[in-house]
Nucleic acid binder design. Structure first.
Lengths: 163, 163
DNA sequence: TCAATTCCGACGAAACGTGTCAGAAATCCC
DNA sequence: GGGATTTCTGACACGTTTCGTCGGAATTGA
């Protein structure tokens, strides 16, 4: 229903790396939609799922991470729903993505805090992965939620001095 | 044999995103090892796999992409093996990774050349993904193969003027 | 001719991503 | 209190991808 798979696009061996999952896509769109729809009362998940055309039950599951990270507040019961826990311009997208996906780390090698690889001696390669990791995190943190919630203006970043 | 899985490390929901696969890890280590071992005659896959302790048959399969991309030359038959097709300091790691993984794209949204999303209208979110994509590619291209093949020096980058 | 080596396709097992579902718990309103 | 609404939680199912093995064909040097 959704996978066109253009035959001219050679399917090398899977094609597509360093990807965020649908989880991230949905989670980010949830946050943006919530920012736009938040006007005091909590916004229900159904409203957001309808608005953004997202699978509601799946979204429900994804949102847990955002709540646990303290990015959104929830209220149960009738007329319940979600609210941003902080103003949108104080929420860096890096926080959102890390809440959704866990630590952003391009190679298992870097996951264990203490020891990089077991081949620590001359593993110059880990320099490459850590540079990538830092770049991704910087890129994510250069956006705030407010930046993405603005209707359409080309690329007005808010408060990043660099880059 | 390799997954310790420290129980204190809460397994949020899979933990680890934006990751390169083993394919990349192995492929990069192959290239680095080849750079170090290349002294005129072709180096056999078995030698490299032994040296780097990589699964040989799997590596064989991975290398196809590197050959097709013109990064390495191969010679079949007895005393055959692989050689770098170009000097190591002229090979950007971005080329290597793209040869291994296909285009580096953080979200399916950006994969199709023409249309970004089907929700093209107000999809401000795609700005985020494309910034990340550019950052990753820049980070990868800021290293050459020669940088990684040097024994150990901290972080001496060669020919990147920026950053 | 024989041994070494790359090349290629098929196969299998395990992990992961993407959802669905049912039901429990909380909250509001009458 | 009772019923409607909504979040919360865990289990499950299904397809795809990753990781790797295997066997054999093609190529080359001695």
């Amino acid at each position: 229903m959704n996978e066109l798979q253009d035959p001219t696009q050679r399917d090398l061996h899977g094609s597509g790396a360093v990807t965020f999952s649908m989880r991230s896509e949905y989670g980010v769109r949830f946050m943006v939609a919530l920012t736009r729809m938040d006007h005091g009362e909590p916004v229900s998940l159904t409203d957001i799922a309808d608005q953004e055309d997202l699978p509601r039950a799946y979204l429900e599951q994804i949102i847990g991470g955002l709540r646990d990270a303290g990015l959104i507040d929830s209220q149960r019961g009738a007329h319940g729903g979600y609210r941003l826990a902080r103003p949108a311009n104080e929420v860096r997208m890096g926080e959102v993505l890390r809440a959704l996906e866990g630590p952003i780390v391009p190679m298992a090698c870097l996951a264990a805090a203490g020891s990089p690889c077991n081949r620590a001696d001359n593993c110059t390669v880990s320099q490459l992965w850590s540079r990538v990791r830092d770049s991704v995190n910087e890129a994510l943190d250069s956006f705030t939620l407010a930046d993405l919630a603005k209707p359409s203006s080309p690329v007005a970043l808010s408060s990043s001095t660099k880059h």
